[in-house]
Design a protein around this nucleic acid. Structure first.
Lengths: 336, 336
DNA sequence: TATAAGCGGACAAACGTTTGCATTGAGGGT
DNA sequence: ACCCTCAATGCAAACGTTTGTCCGCTTATA
């Protein structure tokens, strides 16, 4: 049997309310009794029951983090844990805990979000998603629960945090063009994901600014992160018009692509230059070291939490967006 | 204002207890009222308050997962998220949620665990640790809270799940020896971590069985995962007696080592064979593809949860251990 | 017909807190 | 000596559930 506030009260010969006020450090309690109660609390190894406390003051100090398909390969990507780390570190600082919900299907996601919003256990939600047709988001908007999405969302009523993926695509393409490339493949476009769409658009913009015609044949679609770049790159290498540069939507894709290029007897960057996105730890150690874009996932996480706190704490409705700067990291894989 | 069970009761002209029993699908409620109440619940968009429920029946369906230094680089390692995914998927199936606690310091860990155990919010804890002098573990043992550690622990009163790291070291070394190697370096030994100690011992055993003298100079210490293998490998390459094989305690270390070897103008595996541990996704795509050991982190997670459930559900005290088999994956980096 | 049995539902206590308000007692001003 | 004030503490309601017990009604049994 756990020791409760009344046990303390009895032992200290005061009322439970007094004990409660001691815990809250209420100034109306005299120093003498405060000290006595505290001593007894130590003696009996008392710890307040968070559930009971939550019930009365309707606040749990818990936020929910909903991630898609943790069971799948996607979570093996270093991006997720770094993001999670950002959220967690900020949350910790402010005395919040994180309820982690991993969902595999859309239905599961909807059900989980429903439970988290109405169950009274979380005060706010951070949702990881980059698919743009997300019914969960609409649902959250509808019932006015505080939430922040990581990943740009077109629904105007949502608060989100993201990198500027358009700019990322633009900067990468510009970098290639400045290095003298004209035929630049775009690897890993995935129509359902806004991330890749934005990046592709940025890429197009850069081409346009330099009067390079856009060639749809150079865009290779894939199921976002999961597909491996090796196979995708092979698709490119068999084409008659071989590109001299490859922008991959993810470093892992880029690694696969480089391997395919090597196998074809070509060199990186001399024959084909390759860049990835996300700047995974290995990018720097790969052979050749891979040009990439540092996404600052950790900051993405801290910012998301900060935004969520703002929303939860404020009476006035508002819709916020935050852009976390990404930075191009040029390495040998794109430098002659 | 959230809609409560009494709101439903009023509207349905029944008592709150009846509504509660409808939710619990209690057979004492007639089909007619059950149907009526359910309809009204839908209409009013009712969802039970989990906090209140938890308070009365002393069960939250939440388990805590305590990870060290999420804020640090360690969590970027694919191992953690895969493990987390295993825990989460199993937890989800059984209607449990996960409270994620990331702690940066030992003090923080102790404080967090105290809160989780006494706060009444979690029913059990999974602790990730591989340091063997862990005061948190002793604390948990002392107050009899159900918990499982991921990582072998010497304290006899703890339940744990782990790979057989001794066997992993043994198998890797044997593999090298069978390939004709005699001078095999061991990269990434970290005295504070049982996992690397076990692996080193397995390695020694294999040497001994083949009458190869153990040479301490071939063991390169490092701060577990964080150090990069590139620098460590350089330390080896300057030595007069160059090994022909390298066992790295982690794939990331191995990648760095390979890079250093290449830079020194040597080839893998012809001049020096290299193997890692953990079998990260990239191991298969690296150049050359890296021999590694599949750790099955996902199973580690599911098993840990399963064990925790067993402990929580059982009255009788018992101390359980589980070994998740690891499997050697031989690739070109160690094959002539 | 009287009564036991059984069904469906209501009542109220309990879970461990917090908090507005009431109560008590001491001290000070008149 | 009286009242007022104020400080320190106690009382009890409330948060939203669950659940043991009791009650009234119907139906079957003797």
């Amino acid at each position: 049997m756990r020791v409760t506030i009344t046990d303390i009260a009895k032992r200290a010969k005061v009322s439970p309310s007094t004990v409660s006020r001691v815990i809250a450090d209420n100034p109306r309690i005299s120093a003498a009794t405060k000290e006595k109660v505290l001593r007894i609390m130590k003696e009996m190894n008392y710890h307040p029951n968070i559930i009971a406390r939550s019930l009365v003051n309707q606040t749990t100090k818990i936020i929910g983090v909903v991630m898609p398909g943790m069971a799948e390969q996607s979570l093996q990507h270093p991006f997720y844990p770094e993001l999670l780390g950002g959220i967690a570190s900020m949350a910790n600082n402010q005395g919040y805990k994180i309820l982690l919900a991993n969902v595999s299907t859309v239905d599961e996601e909807r059900e989980m979000v429903k439970e988290l919003t109405f169950g009274g256990i979380t005060e706010g939600i951070i949702l990881l998603t980059s698919r743009d047709d997300n019914p969960t988001v609409d649902q959250l908007v509808k019932n006015g629960f505080p939430f922040v999405v990581i990943g740009r969302t077109e629904n105007p009523y949502v608060n989100w945090v993201d990198n500027d993926n358009f700019l990322i695509g633009y900067q990468l393409a510009t970098h290639f063009i400045e290095q003298g490339h004209q035929e630049i493949a775009f690897l890993g476009y995935s129509p359902g994901y806004m991330v890749t769409r934005d990046r592709l658009n940025g890429y197009k913009k850069a081409l346009q600014e330099h009067n390079i015609p856009f060639d749809p044949a150079l865009v290779i679609e894939s199921k976002f992160i999961s597909d491996n770049g090796y196979d995708l790159m092979k698709q490119i290498l068999v084409k008659e018009k071989r590109p001299t540069g490859v922008i991959a939507c993810d470093d892992l894709l880029a690694f696969g692509a480089i391997r395919a290029i090597h196998e074809a007897g070509l060199r990186v960057p001399e024959d084909i230059a390759v860049a990835g996105i996300n700047n995974v730890p290995l990018a720097d150690y790969y052979n050749p070291p891979l040009t990439s874009v540092k996404i600052n996932a950790f900051s993405l996480g801290t910012k998301a939490f900060e935004m969520l706190r703002t929303i939860m704490g404020s009476e006035i409705q508002s819709y916020n967006r935050a852009i976390i700067p990404a930075e191009l990291v040029v390495r040998s894989s794109t430098q002659r």
